[in-house]
Simulated scan of single mutants.
Amino acid sequence: MHILITGGTGFIGQAFVNTFQADYDFTVLTRDISNAQNIFSHISSDSIKFISELHELPSAIHIDAVINLAGSPIMDKMWSAKHKHVLESSRWEITQHLVDFITTKTITPDVFISGSAVGVYGRQGDSSIDEKHLNHYPEYASKLCEHWEEIARTCCPSTRTVILRTGIVLGKDKGALQKMALPFKLGLGGPIGKGHQYMSWIHIDDMVAAINYLLQHESASGAFNLTSPNPVTNTDFAQKLAACFGKKARLTTPALLLRLLLGERADLLVYGQRVLPTRLLDAGFTFSFDVLDQAFSAIYDA
């Protein structure tokens, strides 16, 4: 199987390529070919290729699957009007380009797997929600993801399309934990606001395994929540993360302070969603790390 992947140099993309380098051939669409070549220098050039534009795809290569994980990091900068344009274009434009290539039969993959996030639901309090939940709270992150998904769905019905509604992906010194862990290591970590908001998380190994499962599961289509079956409150998450370093989660970050520091981005931390992966479980996927203690043990005790 030959996979065209965007976002291949990101946290999830790297993990997927490295995990399945012996099983698939890859073409990585990237803005920085030199950087991508360095990242994947351990993989044979026979198994991985790099392009900076879709039109560079050799006509002789048949693309069996497209995995679209591209998107500028959502928490890195203030959500100014200018940066919101970056967040939107980095998701919407590449997805539209891929859809155009597929719908015009320029490439004819069997499956199109495209990214999204649980932020599509917006803030939902402590109610348990799954893919059937359609009452999305109208805030920026939700609208960003909704339009991202709308573009991807225009591939249907010509190509099996899967939408990945991803939660907080956990891996050692990468992804969310790369920035989150330091204050906890120093004994300065703790809950955000009241700490009642839910955090829907997934271990990186389950993340890539679930993507592969949906890639191979020919009856799977539509939106899937890629989150553990056991979301936790922010307080519980903070306490368990602090315990990994022999610390206590004593310090609370007031929501007002967070808003002063992060602006509108703070809403992603102050509010949350209690998201369940109902469709993934119904499809037969089995999690290796379904509770947070297991995930943190694998990350920090290994």
Rank of each mutant, 00 (worst) to 15 (best):
V28F: 03
V275G: 07
L188W: 12
L269Y: 12
T278R: 11
V28R: 00
I151V: 15
L257T: 13
F11I: 08
E264Q: 11
G71V: 05
T106K: 15
D130M: 02
V28D: 00
K132A: 12
P73Q: 01
G175K: 11
A243D: 11
Q14V: 08
E139K: 00
D282P: 05
G171C: 04
K174Q: 15
K179A: 14
M180R: 12
L256E: 09
R153D: 09
P254G: 02
I43H: 01
W79N: 04
L269F: 15
I102D: 02
K248I: 15
T227D: 09
L281T: 14
H196E: 13
G189W: 00
I204C: 01
S288P: 09
L29M: 08
N212K: 10
S59N: 13
N38L: 08
G193C: 08
L280E: 02
L54N: 10
I113D: 03
F237P: 03
S221Q: 14
A70G: 07
R250Y: 15
T278S: 11
N35R: 15
T278L: 10
P183H: 06
L260R: 12
M75P: 09
I202F: 00
T95E: 03
I107A: 01
Q96V: 08
L241N: 01
D100S: 11
W92N: 06
L256A: 13
A60G: 02
P229W: 06
H2F: 11
G10W: 05
A152V: 07
S128N: 10
V270A: 06
G171Q: 06
T286H: 15
Q96I: 05
D64E: 12
A22M: 09
I48E: 00
R259W: 10
L170S: 04
S158Y: 12
L261Q: 10
V66E: 00
R153K: 14
F112K: 02
D130Y: 02
G284L: 10
V232N: 00
E131I: 02
E56W: 13
I61Q: 04
S89I: 11
M78I: 12
H2E: 11
K105T: 12
S72C: 02
G272K: 02
F20R: 04
L251H: 11
A81W: 13
V17H: 01
R265V: 13
P229V: 07
L87Y: 04
D110V: 13
K240G: 09
A283S: 15
S52E: 14
G175A: 11
C156P: 00
L258A: 03
D236Y: 13
I39Y: 07
H83G: 01
I102R: 04
S80D: 00
L54D: 10
G171P: 09
R153C: 10
S44Y: 01
L241M: 05
L98N: 04
Q178E: 15
I168T: 03
L258M: 13
I51R: 02
M199A: 04
R91Q: 12
L258I: 08
W148V: 02
G195H: 03
E56K: 12
G13D: 03
S47Y: 03
L256W: 12
